[in-house]
Simulated scan of single mutants.
Amino acid sequence: MGGGTNLAKALESLKQTFPDTLSKQTLLIIVSDAQTLEGEKAAALLDLIHRHVREVLWLNTLPKRRWQETPYVKAFLPFCQMYECYTLSHLTQILNQQF
């Protein structure tokens, strides 16, 4: 509690707990500001997972202008489609674009 987000642990747990759900039919949606502990490990796990799923859609809750302040955004971008998403309008636009 209060130690920060650890996306690496979340991705590791997803991979171990639900391995059969990570298939080429899977659309993995991540809602996060990308501010995480163990960012390098999280990027490596995201790379591994993105190879097994149809697509990784990342809804970043930070304004895009602030992404450069977040050390691991650049590390995650090769493995997902990342969108600024902190309003219902953003979400509607993304969903209309994706589906």
Rank of each mutant, 00 (worst) to 15 (best):
M1H: 08
M1V: 12
G3I: 05
G4Y: 06
G4R: 08
G4D: 05
A8P: 01
A8Y: 03
K9N: 15
K9I: 08
L11E: 00
S13Q: 11
L14P: 05
L14R: 04
K15H: 08
Q16S: 15
Q16T: 12
T17D: 13
P19M: 13
P19T: 13
P19F: 12
P19G: 14
D20Y: 09
T21V: 03
T21Y: 10
T21A: 14
L22P: 00
S23L: 02
K24I: 04
K24V: 06
K24H: 10
L27T: 05
L28E: 02
I29S: 04
V31D: 09
V31L: 15
S32E: 05
A34P: 00
A34E: 02
Q35P: 02
L37I: 09
G39T: 00
E40G: 14
E40H: 14
K41V: 14
A42E: 09
A42R: 05
A43I: 01
A43N: 04
A44K: 05
L45Q: 03
L48K: 11
L48D: 13
I49R: 10
H50M: 04
R51F: 05
R51V: 00
H52F: 02
R54N: 14
E55D: 15
V56L: 10
W58Y: 06
L59G: 11
L59N: 07
P63M: 14
K64H: 08
R65K: 10
R65S: 15
R65V: 13
R66V: 05
R66S: 13
E69F: 10
E69A: 15
T70Y: 07
P71E: 11
P71N: 11
Y72D: 03
A75N: 03
L77P: 00
L77T: 03
P78C: 08
C80E: 00
Q81Y: 08
M82D: 11
M82V: 07
Y83S: 10
C85N: 12
L88F: 09
S89F: 08
S89I: 05
H90V: 02
L91Y: 07
T92M: 15
Q93W: 07
I94K: 06
I94L: 08
L95C: 15
Q97R: 11
